[in-house]
Design a protein around this nucleic acid. Structure first.
Lengths: 114, 114
DNA sequence: CACATTCATCGTCTTAGAGCGATATGTTTA
DNA sequence: TAAACATATCGCTCTAAGACGATGAATGTG
């Protein structure tokens, strides 16, 4: 039962991370806690859309939230998530540089053949 | 341009990881390289479904593949992905144990109130 | 060469999720 | 208490993705 719970939670966390806006939100919040009315103008999306994304991150236990008067303040609950993003970026960079390298080689080869 | 490429690749990698079958495939392949005909009987899905999932992991640069005769052999290209899964599992476990703890406290409280 | 094996890809169906406007809920302020 | 503000939620549309059977493209075998 626990094994299945962990499996479900694992997918929930990774699904929450697999969206460009939500990744940007996390990077934005890595600078410290922010209320929604601060977050909104930093993202070119409707209020309902941002609210939904924040809630998905909250449900995945990645963000923490706290109500202060009429504001709701979000912050990163699990800093490990930033480490995960860092590792994924590392993988992405590796891939991009491989592609760039391949591009150069191809260019060179084509150049020689002409 | 590169920033956007990294961002796209990042989402691609995380999307590839956000599926239960694909995570199981990675755990399965962490035991070493396997051809598709070995993988298939270990998963209760159609051949086309497994093939597609393997391809998604391949496209995300997570798996490597090699053709040997009429077999295609897959293996993990980027071991860092296992480390990422490990960290996500850690987060998931933390959450599960929090829930379990909350359950106990609730139980105790209800018990005391009666 | 005909056939079996192995795997990828295509076409189709169905479901999940992103996006947004409109509305609901709770809080401060006038 | 009415109005303004901050945010969540609902209802809807549209697109992306999962699943699978059928087909296609290789490779090996009799």
């Amino acid at each position: 039962m626990t094994a299945k719970s962990v499996s479900n939670m694992r997918v929930k966390i990774l699904s929450a991370l697999s969206d460009p806006i939500r990744l940007d939100l996390l990077v934005y919040l890595s600078g410290g806690e922010r209320c929604v009315c601060e977050i909104l103008p930093a993202f070119q999306r409707s209020q309902s859309t941002i609210s939904k994304h924040l809630n998905i991150l909250y449900e995945a236990d990645i963000l923490e939230r706290r109500v202060d008067g009429k504001r709701t303040i979000y912050c990163i609950k699990e800093p490990m998530v930033l480490e995960i993003i860092r590792m994924v970026d590392c993988m992405a960079l590796k891939k991009i540089s491989q592609l760039a390298e391949a591009g150069k080689i191809l260019e060179k080869t084509l150049g020689n053949n002409q």
